[in-house]
Computed example of a mutant assay.
Amino acid sequence: MNGAEALLREALPRLDALRETAPLVHCMTGAVSVNFCANTVLALGARPICAEHPAESAEIAAQAAALSLSLANITEVRDCAMRLAAGAAKAADIPMAFDAVGVGASMYRRELVKCYLAEKPWLIKGNASEIRALLLETGRSGAGVDVGAEDRAERGEEEKILALACDAAALARREDTVVLLSGAVDLLTDGERCFALQNGVPLLGKICGSGCALNCLAASFLALKAGRDKKREALLSALLAVTVWNVSAETAEARGPGSLAVELLDRLGRIGGAELSLRFSGEEVRI
């Protein structure tokens, strides 16, 4: 059993625990993806609330078991509400997962992200270009919120994957948190160890909101707060979220992105620990 498999075995009991307790998860994401994110959390077994009015966001965040924030489709009002929610979550020691969507696409987002990193999220998520933008504090043009061609690493491109793993680990060390770099190979690191998670299908990239939904799943598992070590909690929660999401996609009977989006919700409600263990593909990366 390799290190990634051992970590998955430790995380698996959380799937049943989540379905038994149905924690309340505050999901703050863009209008483009909010419905899909809420349905994803419901299908898994948790309870989403998507309040984003500045007058109530902090109060609701303080009542929730976890908070999921995303820069996707950002607006001035939602930024205000998310800052208030992030502050309330930090004050109450409520786990927060932050998705740095499109952070390299504009100076505005690069300035905003500093406020959210200051609230010490338990997990930072982004694609390769977003993680590099966070690490280097620079932007890029032309790719929007998608990963840039120069940053894309496919399965089998070991040198590029290692370079991305080192970037993710450097960001994790700087921010003293756990980083999830999503892509054809998902990379998960606490700055000391890094795991390459290889499940999933390319068609996931054709579903708008799939990345935001994954962040909400990670927050859902974080909501359990099963241990005292925040980094360990974030590692286990993110690993399980990625595995549940990607194995559900692999086993869905989909003809295209539309049917995959529907099948994903169906599969999330039925997926079990035995199937996850059987299909899991991951290994530790030496960084």
Score class of each variant (00 low, 15 high):
Gly3Gln: 12
Ala4Trp: 04
Arg9Ile: 03
Arg19Gly: 03
Leu24Ser: 09
Val25Cys: 10
Met28Phe: 10
Thr29Asn: 06
Val32Asp: 03
Val34His: 08
Asn35Trp: 03
Ala43Gly: 04
Ala43Leu: 11
Leu44Lys: 09
Leu44Arg: 10
Arg47Trp: 11
Cys50Leu: 13
Cys50Ile: 14
Glu52Trp: 07
His53Leu: 08
Ala58Tyr: 14
Glu59Phe: 13
Ala61Gly: 08
Gln63Pro: 04
Ser70Gln: 04
Ile74Gln: 13
Val77Asp: 04
Leu84Asn: 02
Ala86Pro: 11
Ala86Cys: 11
Ala91Pro: 01
Asp93Gln: 15
Ala97Arg: 00
Ala97Leu: 09
Phe98Glu: 00
Asp99Cys: 12
Val103Phe: 07
Gly104Arg: 01
Met107Leu: 15
Arg110Cys: 04
Glu111Ser: 03
Leu112Tyr: 07
Tyr116Phe: 15
Ala118Pro: 03
Glu130Tyr: 07
Arg132Ile: 06
Ala133Trp: 01
Leu134Ile: 09
Gly139Ile: 06
Arg140Pro: 00
Ser141Asn: 05
Gly144Pro: 05
Gly144Thr: 08
Glu150Cys: 00
Arg152Trp: 09
Arg155Asn: 00
Glu157Asp: 12
Ala169Tyr: 10
Ala169Trp: 08
Leu171Gly: 06
Leu171Tyr: 09
Arg174Met: 14
Glu175Gly: 09
Thr177Ser: 11
Val178Pro: 02
Val179Leu: 07
Val179Asn: 07
Ser182Cys: 05
Ser182Tyr: 01
Gly191Ser: 03
Glu192Thr: 15
Arg193Cys: 11
Phe195Cys: 09
Phe195Ala: 08
Leu197Thr: 06
Gly211Leu: 10
Ala213Glu: 10
Leu214His: 07
Ala219Asp: 01
Lys225Asn: 08
Lys225Ala: 12
Ala226Gln: 12
Asp229Val: 11
Leu236Lys: 11
Ser237Lys: 10
Ser237Gly: 09
Ser237Phe: 02
Val242Gln: 07
Val244Ser: 00
Trp245Pro: 00
Asn246Val: 01
Val247Ser: 00
Ser248Arg: 06
Thr251Arg: 14
Ala254Asp: 00
Arg255Glu: 14
Val262Ala: 09
Asp266Phe: 07
Arg267Glu: 14
Leu268His: 12
Leu268Glu: 06
Arg270Phe: 02
Gly273His: 00
Ala274Thr: 12
Glu275Ser: 07
Glu275Thr: 14
Leu276Arg: 02
Ser277Arg: 14
Arg279Leu: 15
Glu284Gln: 15
